[in-house]
Design a protein around this nucleic acid. Structure first.
Lengths: 230, 230
DNA sequence: TACCATTTGTCCGTATGTATC
DNA sequence: AGATACATACGGACAAATGGT
């Protein structure tokens, strides 16, 4: 009796460790996991118990399971989880959006230096395209949420830091999910500002770029504060 | 037959929505969740099914279950999840630590301005205490990981941005979990640098503070690069 | 196209361990 | 000490998606 309890307690740790080892092996190779039934038999536990152990790894995104196919290991993307936990929070406390904006501005502005150094021609061209579409849409009175995001995304992707990309993607998603962000601003002015940002970027004029970006965040902040007080 | 399938498909969505609503209600009040058995009966599903639906919310930390007590709603802390997904990644690809360091330096340095504005006397005093302990330990040749972390934590907590606190906590945890970070540096010099940082902070000399902090991150980066090439 | 084995998803009932009050 | 409530485990059944024949 006492032996089985100890045995069970040990097994659950061993089980988790075994899973972690299997993950580390497969992170490089991309090899598939054994099937549930097989693995359960190998490790000497029930399917339910195995699934419970697997569950946190699937929640973290390291293991992805496809019905009818199997389980796979991949680079985890935290943006999904960040958005999942913080979106509900944002729904309950809308003023949190200001805290998010603060962090977003810190990351985007302080990544400009690296972006200027590392950006390649294709990325510059892509940003140029977005600016042209923005100006065209602005002239017609159309919004350009997609192009705006694409512009900034190209900017912070060019830093080459994958984690940074994941974080900022999360913040952009959170912003798009908030109704407070739907306050429309002067389209022509925003499009124009992006044109000047691109210009400063091409000239590698960091301090000018930082100033423009700072302005943009100050505007966004102001619009949110106004929306909160309504 | 066809009806039950549709019914099931609908139920799972409805179920999730109901849970989200119950969470938003309780985020403010802190009220307890109904018991599993009760809730399963009310929503017309099995206990296992209910637990499956609840599981992602528990993974995100919004719902916390206490054995023998019940389920509670609380502010989600993403640092746990970030650490969970990225730690395994870091074990497989140690050079990722440089990307983490880059983000950490962006956040810490660009939060200094806000910290200088908002820090109160108690926080200043706390940092002073850490510096004194650091110097004492450095003189004896002892490491001071805890005090170092406490110093920086007080710094970024004084910005008053809870989300920022969660993010930076995650990065510090990741660093402590990496063996690459165990490279010891010149203790006396590090302690001294912290003393000068505190001095600049008290004088509200932002640019001096930024310079010192930049130096510190450059050192850290250098030590990691060296450790990677061994 | 249609069929089929494989694999994961969901559900059920049940039993026992264990923490809380 | 006892009632309550969650944690963990097992086995079995069927649904649903996938991939290949």
């Amino acid at each position: 009796m006492g032996a089985t309890e100890i045995n069970n307690a040990l097994q659950s740790n061993v089980l988790e460790d075994r899973i972690i080892d299997m993950i580390t092996e497969r992170l490089q190779s991309g090899e598939k996991f054994p099937t549930e039934t097989q693995l359960a038999k190998d490790l000497g536990v029930s399917r339910t118990a195995l699934r419970e152990t697997l569950s946190p790894f699937e929640a973290s995104g390291i293991i992805v399971s496809k019905q009818g196919s199997g389980r796979y290991v991949q680079l985890p993307d935290v943006s999904v989880q960040i958005v999942d936990s913080w979106r509900i929070l944002l729904r309950a406390k809308p003023d949190m959006l200001l805290s998010f904006l603060e962090i977003r501005s810190m990351l985007e502005i302080s990544s400009l230096g690296k972006a200027i150094e590392r950006a390649d021609a294709a990325q510059l061209q892509h940003m140029g395209l977005q600016v042209r579409i923005m100006k065209k849409k602005a002239a017609r009175g159309e919004a350009f949420v997609h192009e705006d995001r694409e512009f900034h995304k190209t900017l912070f992707i060019s830093t080459g830091n994958i984690m940074l990309e994941q974080l900022l993607t999360a913040f952009w998603d959170l912003f798009e999910s908030s109704p407070l962000n739907k306050q429309h601003s002067d389209l022509v002015e925003v499009a124009d500002k992006h044109e000047r940002m691109l210009e400063a970027f091409t000239r590698k004029d960091l301090s000018q770029l930082e100033n423009l970006m700072n302005d943009q965040f100050a505007d966004a902040r102001y619009r949110i504060v106004v929306a909160l007080n309504k």
